[in-house]
Design a protein around this nucleic acid. Structure first.
Lengths: 189, 189, 189, 189
DNA sequence: TATGAATGAGTCTTCATTCAT
DNA sequence: TATGAATGAAGACTCATTCAT
C-alpha cells in the first residue's frame, strides 16, 4: 500500500496519525487542519497537498484504517455444540481492525457523515454475518428457531462492536465472554 | 415570578427547541448559534441573553430535557417467575424521558463534553439499577448466580439505551422484547 | 445639588460611584454599562434612565466630581519673601477637588474625549493662575524676570497636577515640597 | 531568513503603522482591528496572521517602537560647571526614540495595560539615570546635596518625558531649555 | 513536492440602547 | 420611577482554502 521513496508517504502517514488522534479526542468539527499540521510537524500547505479538502482526511482515515480482516476460514472458530466457546473465540479473534481512536471516530462521526456511516454499516453487517454464521455452525439442527438466533447474533454483534464505546461513555464494562456465555445459555444448549 | 405576557417563556423554549433539533441533526460543533436563532425566530442577541455561552445551550438541554422518571414502585413491573415479561415491561415503561433527538445529542456529545458524559453515565447507572432490581424480583431464590444476573442487566440496559442509536448507525433494528426473551431464557427458567 | 426624595439620587449616586471606580480601573471604553449597573446594584435600565447615553456618565463625573475649590483669599497662602513656603502651602491646600480615581479618569480620557480635555485644560489653567499669583506675591519687586516666573509656575503646576499620575505610571515619587524648594532657589531668594 | 519579495515585510510593517496611528488617535480600546486592516490595506485575516490577539499589536508596538538610544558616552553632553547647558543638551539629544504617536500610546495605555506600564517605567528609569548622571558630572564637588540633585533630575525627567503630553492635554507649552535653566539656577551655580 | 503568507467568509460574543410593562 | 427582555450592529477571532514561489 505504501508508496516508495525515502520520506515519501512519511508526511502523509504522519498527517493521518495526527488527524486520527485529534479527531478521536475532540471530534472532526472541532479539529482545525492547522492543528493537524502542527501535530504532524508538517507545514500547513502540505496537508492540503495530500488531502485537498478537510473531509478527505476523515474519508481516508475511515477507508484506510478500518477494515474487517479476511480470516482463512470462519469454521476455524466455530465448533458444533459449543456456541459459548464459538462466540468467545469470535470475540477474541475479533476481525475488526481499527484502533480505539478509529472506533471513536467511526461512531461519533457516523452520526453526521454519510460516508462514515456507510462504512460503519458495512462493518457492522460483516460482523453480524460472521456471528450468525458461527452460531449456525455451533448450533446445528433446528434447535432454536431462526429468529432467536438472529436476535442473539445481533445482540452479540452490538456488544462486540460497541463495548469500548459503551465503557467509555457509561463507565461500565461489559465482558464479551460473559455475554457469549449468556447467549449460549439462551440458545438452550 | 415569570410574567404571563403574550409570548411568555416562549423565546427561551423556542431557542432550546431549535437547538435540540439542530444539534441532533448536525452535531453541536457544526451548528452555528445564528442558525439556532433563526430557526427559533428570535434575534441572535437573545440567544446569548438566555445562554451566555454556546455550551450553555447544550448543558441546559441535557439538564432540562433528559431525566429518569420516578416511578411509583419498581415492583409494579417486576413479577416473580417472569423475567422476560418483567424486562419487557421495563422496556415499555422505559423510564428515560428524552426525545430521540436528545438521545442522539446525548450519545454524540458525551464523547467530547464532560458534562454530557456525566449525565449519560448517571442515566445509564439508573437504568442499570432498575434492570438489576427488576431481575432480582423476577428471579427470586438463588437461581442464576449474581454475576450472570449482572451481565444480563448490563446487556439489557445497553440494548435499551442504545437501541435507537444502534439502528440509526447500523441500519439494523434490535427488538428489546426479543432480547428480553433471550435473556430470560439465559437466566434459566 | 442633590435632589430631594427618599431614595432619590441614591441610585444615581451609586451609579456614578460605580462608574468612577470602573472607568478609573479599566478605562471608559473597556467598561460596559451593564457592569456599572451591576456594581451599583441597580437594574440596567436605570442607568439609561439617568444617563441616556453612556458618554453622559463620563460627562457627569467630570462635571460633578472635579472642581477647583474657591478659596477665601489666595493671599492667605502667599507670603512675600518666602516663595518656597508659599508654593508648599499651595501644594498642601491644593485646590483641586478630585479623587485619585477621578484624576486617572481625567488624564486618561482627556486624550480622546474633548469634553474631558476641555475640563482638564480649565483646571490646569486655574491652578497655573494661582501658582503664578502666589509667586508674584511671594516675589515682589522685579527680582526674577517674568518669563522665568512663568516657567516656574508652569513647572510647579505640572508637578502638582500630575504627581499622582507620574508615580502611578513611572513608579517614582516626586515630592511637591522638594520641588517647591527647588523652584524657590531657582528664583533666587 | 526573510525572502526579499516584492512587498517584503511590508504587510506587517503597514499593519503596525496603521495601528500606531489609530491607537494614538482614538485609543487602543476604541480602535477596531478591522479599521487597522483597512488603513493598512491588508485583509482582516492578515492582521491576525501576524498578531494572533489584538493586544499583540500593542505589545509589538511598544516593544519595537520605543527604546532608549545607546549613546556613545554620556560625558559627551555633560560639562562640568554648566548644568543648564548639560540638561539642555540632554534634552536636545534626547535618547528616547518614539514617535509622538507612540508616546501618546505609551502614556495612555500604561494606565490599563501592564506590559505597556512596565515599558514606560523602564524608559523613565533610564532617562532618570541619565539626567542624574549628567548632573553629577556637571556639578562636581559636593555642591548641592544628593537629595536636591535627585529632585532636580526627577523633575527634569518628568518634563522631558511628559512635555508633549502636557501640552497636548493642557494646551500649555513647557520649554525644556527654560526648565533646564531654572533647575541649573536652583542647583546653585 | 514543499512552504507559509494571504484571503475573506463565517463564528461566537459583547454591548449600547430601546421599550413594554 | 423601575425593570429586564429584546435588538442588532459591531467586534475579536477562527479557519478552510488558495497560491506564488
Amino acid at each position: 500500500m505504501r508508496k516508495r521513496g525515502r520520506q515519501e508517504g512519511d508526511a502523509r502517514t504522519r498527517i493521518l496519525d495526527a488527524a486520527e488522534e485529534l479527531f478521536a479526542a475532540d471530534g472532526y468539527e472541532a479539529t482545525a487542519t492547522a492543528r493537524v499540521a502542527r501535530r504532524a510537524k508538517v507545514p500547513k500547505g502540505l496537508v492540503f497537498h495530500y488531502f485537498p479538502q478537510k473531509i478527505d482526511l476523515l474519508v481516508a482515515l475511515v477507508e484506510e484504517r478500518t477494515f474487517i480482516e479476511v480470516l482463512p476460514a470462519e469454521s476455524v472458530e466455530a465448533m458444533p455444540g459449543d456456541p459459548a466457546g464459538t462466540l468467545s473465540r469470535l470475540a477474541r479473534r475479533f476481525p475488526l481492525r481499527a484502533s480505539p481512536a478509529m472506533r471513536r471516530i467511526l461512531f461519533r462521526e457516523a452520526d453526521t457523515h454519510r460516508s462514515v456511516r456507510d462504512r460503519l454499516r458495512s462493518l457492522n453487517g460483516e460482523v453480524l454475518r460472521r456471528a450468525r454464521g458461527a452460531l449456525e455452525v455451533a448450533l446445528p439442527g433446528t434447535r432454536g428457531d431462526a429468529a432467536r438466533l438472529e436476535v442473539a447474533a445481533a445482540t452479540f454483534t452490538a456488544v462486540l462492536l460497541y463495548q469500548e464505546n459503551l465503557s467509555q461513555l457509561t463507565g461500565e464494562h461489559i465482558d464479551p465472554d460473559a455475554v457469549a456465555d449468556l447467549i449460549a445459555r439462551a440458545l438452550g444448549t
